[in-house]
Write a protein that binds this DNA or RNA. Structure first.
Lengths: 348, 348
DNA sequence: CTGTTAGCGCATTCAG
DNA sequence: CTGAATGCGCTAACAG
């Protein structure tokens, strides 16, 4: 009998996979009951629950998410927009986000912009087609179209990795500007005479730009009368090799600079390792600072002085905020500043 | 008039977002026509296409993917299962996969297993609920349940990052075993007397285990009569800090070893930098080899001798195979060996 | 080239 | 505690 049931399963046009109705037939209940057992087993009699679960097992039923989404108007997904998947630093944030969200039953769907606002627009539009229940974004600078789409979607939105007084909705981040101002203050305290900001500023990377602004502001404050120096490429990838290239440019352009403030640890690490090869003593001949506190920073010799940012926690806190919103619990404060921390090591 | 149209949009129960019917009303056509314009504009009159596109713009319509999926029985998504999102090496594969797939109109949905077969099972089940049109997996070792689910799903599957004679469906990879055997052969040629394999072998990381097997096989062949040496932790994360820790253990256990073969560049890099700190001359006092050819390998001093694997290409080729299958084009060969390459630098 | 009809598989009412 | 009816937004099949 049971075997017959199993075999009767599957028919019809597109799908030949097991449906809820199939499970219901095997369990001898209605489809609604199966649905209930799946979503709120407490409201069903224990025997029914067991019968249905057994039927699910024997039929190898896997719920169709698209159908569930369409019927309930909840996709149980959260969209996350990051600049690059392969950038480990955002992967950490994603991991924090995903961990907390999975606990609450939400899946994360990822889109990446390659540091382009134009691509961000396409990505957001695309992700909206999947009707996520909430949005997570890296960055606070977006095109009007993006802001508009997000506002019209009328779902919770959390921006991150930066700071602004006018977030689209909620914000979990820190001030890149303040971070670099702090780095400059540290440089002053340590007695560095001529700090230069070095970075790659890709068109859509507003966070790197904010860091440069922070450098400029810091210089104005702590090095009055000294003309700030910046060595900036606008299309180098964020790799150690770029750091090496930027080091050469910076040395050529400002040979008397005694400190290079890089916009990212990856660049700084590449520069520091290149210094090692070229016999440039760090920090005696040239000091180096980075940004991000990547793992490599603590392993280098000398250790890389850098600014640590709460990569994982940003994801986690954003997720917590979103889950609370999605459960209609009382909203938190609109913005959450997680700060940063200067980590002094040997390189500066 | 147009304004009135816009305002009449939205009503009903769950959704208050613009639907295809809304667009149709504004454009003065049927919903079906809107659908057609979206999917095969070539089969519609240019004026209709323009009218519909204008209506889409004015209403800010974004297609509901779940509904489309349900009706067409194609989700236009490909599921990708990787050990860790934050592991940059898999992120590269993902990037290759995603780039090619996006071109063809497919979205990638990601699941991560944290190197656990148990978690892989849950992840695969979960992803199957979204009815992906195809599956991409890192690794060739899976539980029976996973294989079973995937076979029953009756969709194209590509496994990667390893080699097997019995793939679930298709395979794009290389032999980890052969790679380490080659490393051992290189060690022999270079005159290293006592190579030790050092790695972290997390429970579900069969690729690392295969590398160790390759080391053992290589030793049997190239170092006959010499007892192979392995220093293996089973729960250390794949980080530079772990490499440092493993270096200490290896030095304590096999002080006379003149070459350490690490299961990953990250470990090797951590060890090499630790050697630098401890004043151990590389490669004179101790040679080091890694695996993966991470970016850091070429920046270290000395450069890290390692095995390069086609991280990005594996994703790209897998995607091409999947796209061809999904278009019902003639299937390729079942397996594709992308090989590996020993990159000799200064460390060994 | 375009419109009509009929579901896709599930969850939300509402009755019992 | 369980079942029946209804529709989510879209597309496949058919006409015309």
């Amino acid at each position: 009998m049971n075997d017959t049931d199993k075999r009767q399963i599957r028919r019809r046009f597109g799908t030949n996979s097991v449906t809820m109705a199939d499970v219901a037939r095997v369990a001898g209940v209605s489809a609604q009951t199966v649905s209930r057992v799946l979503r709120e087993p407490d409201g069903c009699s224990p025997q029914t629950v067991e019968r249905v679960r057994e039927a699910i097992r024997s039929t190898q039923y896997v719920q169709n998410h698209a159908a569930s989404h369409l019927a309930s108007n909840r996709s149980m997904t959260v969209a996350a927009v990051i600049p690059q998947i392969a950038a480990s630093i955002f992967a950490e944030t994603l991991q924090g986000l995903s961990n907390v969200l999975l606990q609450a039953g939400y899946q994360v769907i990822i889109g990446h912009t390659d540091y382009s606002h134009e691509r961000e627009e396409a990505v957001v539009r695309n992700l909206l087609g999947r009707r996520p229940d909430a949005f997570f974004l890296v960055g606070t600078h977006h095109t009007d179209a993006v802001r508009d789409m997000l506002v019209r979607a009328a779902i919770p939105v959390v921006e991150s990795w930066a700071w602004t007084d006018a977030p689209i909705d909620q914000l979990v981040g820190f001030s890149n500007q303040a971070a670099l101002a702090e780095a400059v203050a540290y440089a002053r305290r340590r007695g560095h005479a001529r700090p230069t900001f070095v970075g790659s500023l890709r068109a859509g990377d507003d966070r790197a730009r904010e860091r440069m602004d922070g450098y400029l502001a810091g210089m104005a404050q702590h090095y009055p009368g000294f003309a700030p120096r910046t060595v900036v490429a606008d299309e180098l990838p964020y790799t150690m090799a770029s750091g090496r290239a930027l080091l050469d440019i910076a040395r050529a352009r400002h040979p008397d600079s005694d400190l290079l403030l890089f916009s990212s640890d990856l660049l700084a690490a590449g520069a520091l390792l290149a210094c090692q090869r070229q016999g440039i003593a760090v920090p005696q001949a040239l000091a180096v600072m980075g940004f991000g506190d990547y793992e490599v920073a603590s392993e280098l010799n000398p250790g890389l002085t850098t600014i640590a940012v709460p990569t994982v926690r940003m994801g986690e806190e954003a997720a917590r905020i979103l889950v609370r919103r999605l459960r209609n619990e009382t909203p938190d404060t609109r913005t959450l500043d997680l700060g940063f921390e200067l980590v002094a090591r040997g390189s500066a």
